[in-house]
Design a protein around this nucleic acid. Structure first.
Lengths: 190, 190
DNA sequence: TTTAATTTTGACTAATCAGTCAATCAAGTA
DNA sequence: TACTTGATTGACTGATTAGTCAAAATTAAA
């Protein structure tokens, strides 16, 4: 089991799926891009659907620290969220292909085929932590699961905007996008 | 040109694409579900890719009023946005299949193949209106295009949550989700 | 009713694809 | 070196698919 080879297949597949979609990306092209034979690809992944789902899990496992690491060691919950906000955006900048793949996967029917216990467990831990962080806000408490999803979505939107447009000053964008997220639309009273 | 027949094909396709994805939905199945022959399907749509893109445009044209209609006739910009917020959520509830299709299409490579002048123009008008509405907020003015996308995304997130979870009291959810959007995370000072 | 024009049909085709497997290769071992 | 084990290969296959087209059905016109 050559991990290097397996990862080469995964990364080639991510790029091709992003470019052509799941339907217009034959396994033969993935294998060619990964400099591997079709036979090898099917040694490492049972089926094409399996490959797609494994890519998702791979990215999820490799990116989850991004969330958690930045919730600790900050005094206020404003700072905790802001720190996570910036970290997620930075992850998107560093891994644009993985980011785009996640967006595509999450809106596809594959999403509902994922039932990975270990992943759910780890993310449940993340869930608890974030809920703890947002607890001081009464609105959030009404429906913590919605709030969780709302946060995740807002970070994704910011990252997507940054990736699709040419933003020169990332730091400044992180700042003002978080400000909109944090203060909302109420005209600021300053 | 039987419009009824064309719409039957479109709606059958939307449902099948949502269920199985673009790649695993043969045109033969779409035709069968629409109670039409394959030949007829290809009479109305040049290719399968063409069908997919036409569905997107169809939904866009048929849903754009939802945004605009609710920005007028409200006194404050808080009320305008809230009115739009509720209208979009209601549209999602009334048209869950169209909603899901849009989400799938928007994250797919097809998105970048759309270059419909007329649509861009109509949405540009919407863009101007919303920017006018949000102008009083200084944060939004820094990057109005981001704000626009942020609003759209937040409404989508709320709708998606409502569709994927069993929310009994829609009115109350509309209220509290908009509150989070409007006031942000800052602990309310009441 | 007859004729002409238009729409619909579905069997068919050419192309493509996921996945297989016997043969080859590479690495380790004695 | 000779043998064993496991990974790799890519030509091949059976199944599936997008799209065609000549014939049939339907509609409109005369």
């Amino acid at each position: 089991m050559d991990l290097n080879k397996k990862e080469r297949i995964i990364f080639s597949a991510i790029k091709l799926f992003n470019k052509n979609g799941f339907h217009a990306t034959p396994t033969s092209k993935i294998a060619k891009k990964a400099k591997v034979s079709v036979g090898t690809l099917f040694n490492y992944f049972k089926t094409k659907d399996d490959l797609i789902k494994e890519i998702y899990l791979y990215i999820k496992y490799h990116s989850k620290e991004v969330f958690l690491n930045h919730l600790e060691n900050k005094p206020t919950y404003h700072d905790k969220l802001q720190s996570m906000w910036c970290a997620v955006i930075q992850w998107g900048i560093d891994n644009p292909e993985e980011f785009q793949f996640l967006e595509m996967f999450n809106t596809s029917p594959y999403k509902f085929q994922i039932q990975e216990e270990r992943l759910l467990e780890e993310y449940n831990q993340l869930r608890e932590t974030i809920i703890e962080v947002i607890t001081p806000n009464s609105v959030c408490l009404k429906n913590p699961d919605y709030t969780l999803m709302y946060i995740d979505n807002a970070m994704h939107a910011a990252t997507r905007f940054l990736l699709n447009n040419h933003i020169k000053d990332v730091r400044s964008f992180e700042q003002s996008s978080f400000e909109l997220f944090w203060y909302g639309f109420k005209p600021s009273v300053q």
